[in-house]
Design a protein around this nucleic acid. Structure first.
Lengths: 124, 124, 124, 124
DNA sequence: GTGGTCTAGACCACA
DNA sequence: GTGGTCTAGACCACA
């Protein structure tokens, strides 16, 4: 959570990272996340920057804050699932489009993907 | 071959487009491509810009130019095949990485891809 | 840097000239060269033509360009040295070949060369 | 005497070749050269082309023709010697100029030339 | 100010 | 008609 590029504003990169952790399940629904201060320290970032990132993804519905006790991942598992599926759908579509541009058929594409996972599995 | 974004230089986008046409087989190995002027007109671009794009992909090995007769796709089918496979490999890797970040397993990813192709097929 | 023949494209002649200046040490390794505009003005040539020449010799490894600060001679002195030696070797070979065609022996050729340098020296 | 480039008229190349043979001493002063017909056949060239070449170098003073008995190399050894020296001088000057442009000193140039001949000698 | 891109349009050799 | 070169001049991001 500390590798930032110079291309985009840092708070946007933090937002992306945190949303990813929620979507992927690293942070579970309803789970309490670390304090702004701790997160800022972990990311080597100004607390204000971290605060801005957290506020934004709270506004987007990923977090809720309880005034006195901290911030929690939304317990709306359906919401998280939907975001996850939207993203996954986008990735799948992009993949199919790219392969299509290369003139690679559906069957070939699926086969190549299986092959990739297979090799990767054997290595790991 | 006429929709350009403002993010990257036009000549780079043209290079990408033309290489894609060669890699995907729209232009066959050894086939003559349209003249610089014609391509420029088709792309609504200055002939110099098209010339620059063509010179670059010629330098990369996709084209050869015969002085007074025009430019031809390389007849080195092996070269084209290698580029195609490199690109496909990159796309597959990127896909797997992105799905992995979402916490989606290999089996799920393959399943989603099949599903996507299936739906698309039924629509078309 | 301003006398161009009609036999070869101007940008090729500029390339030759600039590479010569680098090889001969007029421009030192790591040294900043004048801006594209200044060089173009000095050579009485369109900036685009100068830009093309510079891009080419940059691609060949003689220059590196830092976006907003200018272009610099490569600091790879080894590279420059190698190019210099290759060229010198070619010149020596051509000389020996030409003298050989005239039926002039190695000893004679060396003698004539010494004589030439000697006379030239006394003049200067 | 039969390898011609497409860049220059053939008769000019023949002239060059024949003058070279005279200058280098392959054809001696006063020696009779083969007939136009034989030379043309040897060079795989139309007799008219050979005739033109021979007339030109005769005009330049390398040959004299005796109406009934053929063409002879001039017996003016002084003339031949002068041409030879002029050419050699030009080659030497060009060599020194080229080396000078590379920033190579007289001593270095002489040394490199000796080295070249030495290596060549050991190989042959 | 720096490198770099792009357009509009002229001109060239080659066949 | 073909690729290729060149000019004149505008415009851009970057720092």
């Amino acid at each position: 959570m500390w590798n930032f590029s110079n291309e985009k504003p840092v708070y946007l990169q933090i937002m992306e990272e945190l949303k990813m952790q929620i979507i992927s399940g690293s942070y579970k629904p309803g789970e309490r996340i670390p304090s702004v201060r701790d997160l800022a320290e972990e990311a080597r970032v100004n607390p204000n920057t971290m605060q801005k990132a957290l506020s934004e993804i709270e506004r987007e519905g990923f977090l809720i804050s309880l005034r006195t006790s901290g911030k929690y991942v939304t317990d709306d598992a359906e919401f998280i699932k939907n975001v996850r599926e939207d993203r996954a759908g986008g990735i799948v579509k992009e993949f199919a489009d790219n392969m299509g541009k290369l003139g690679i058929s559906a069957d070939e594409a699926v086969e190549m993907l299986k092959m990739y996972y297979c090799k990767k599995n054997n290595k790991g």
